[in-house]
Design a protein around this nucleic acid. Sequence first.
DNA 1: CGCAGTCTACCAAGTGTTAGGTAGGCTGCA
DNA 2: TGCAGCCTACCTAACACTTGGTAGACTGCG
Lengths: 186, 186
Amino acid sequence: MAAARRTAQAHGYSGLNFRDLAADVGIRAPSIYHHFPSKADLGAAVAKRYWEDTAAELEAMSSECADPLRCLQAYPSIFRRSLESGNRLCLCSFMSAEYDDLPVEVQKEVQAFGDVNVAWLSRTLVAAGLVGREESEARARSIFAAVAGAQLMARSRSDISLFDALIDGYRAAGLLPGGKKASRRS
Amino acid sequence: MAAARRTAQAHGYSGLNFRDLAADVGIRAPSIYHHFPSKADLGAAVAKRYWEDTAAELEAMSSECADPLRCLQAYPSIFRRSLESGNRLCLCSFMSAEYDDLPVEVQKEVQAFGDVNVAWLSRTLVAAGLVGREESEARARSIFAAVAGAQLMARSRSDISLFDALIDGYRAAGLLPGGKKASRRS
DNA sequence: CGCAGTCTACCAAGTGTTAGGTAGGCTGCA
DNA sequence: TGCAGCCTACCTAACACTTGGTAGACTGCG
């Protein structure tokens, strides 16, 4: 299933296929049907596990460093890690692109990923005292979308430093907290 | 070829297929080979035409309204239009997701689209006096990525008003020029 | 036994692509 | 004028291959 996730992050839901996936795991394609009744179920399971893991990671981040501002500054690193690991995309960004061709059960999980991220960001923005409760969700959505966009662009150039630059740009513009010095020079 | 563009904006390069495409145009699949030697060439041609059209549209925008600030405020509308027209994505955002599976000739055109957008944004930002020449390209890239991300998110909810909200969020945060009143309250 | 997990052997659809042929239009020469 | 030669645009038929999915049999463990 980790194999499925990796493939999906690189080639999307449509890039998932039973033969290759089975080979990765060391079994034959039809055996997969013992674990998932259909490709749609497999996809949904992968996507669900993905946002669950992300949610756990975000939660860990929140409890590890007490300062919510630090958490926010670290947030893009989650997306950065995908790029580091074979120039992969956030699974759900990819699936957002494929959205129209996705089975409904997969679509649901994709949306859940967004919800998880926005909820965490929103909470953390408020905790950091950066925005009021009223505007926090809107701001959270903007941040989420912007970071996803940065990941997409960086991937199409296979250039992680471009991702960093884009994030710096967001900080310089004030969308993300933190960067003042890093933005101007170098 | 316009049909190919529409399909690619909804289903990506991998979603393009000769049979359906031919049917749309009213001919048979193999006849396409009279016009394009391969799927890769077709894809490249579609992508190239896409960024050329976009470049022309941007140029028209620049000359139509003399005020570069207005141009910048209108910029997201280009991406909005794709969503309006059948919840479609910017062709090149989609292809950025598929990047690893794209033939090189198509990859080049995808990058060219980004270059065109960033160049225009950069130029216009400077003309509007919003940033210095040194930082303009970085800011342009950030804007481009953020708007693309907003489009992606809005699509996955089939909700154009979410796109508008995200753009508003960018304005409120200071990434895009324009919104002051809309940002603070409500 | 019964069942979980895997296998081999298929299948129907759908993919990009090739081969070979036809219809009609233009050009230039006798 | 007539006709050869070449052109573009399209056709049908088939290719080799990949896709998700099914049927039915085997194995080993409780």
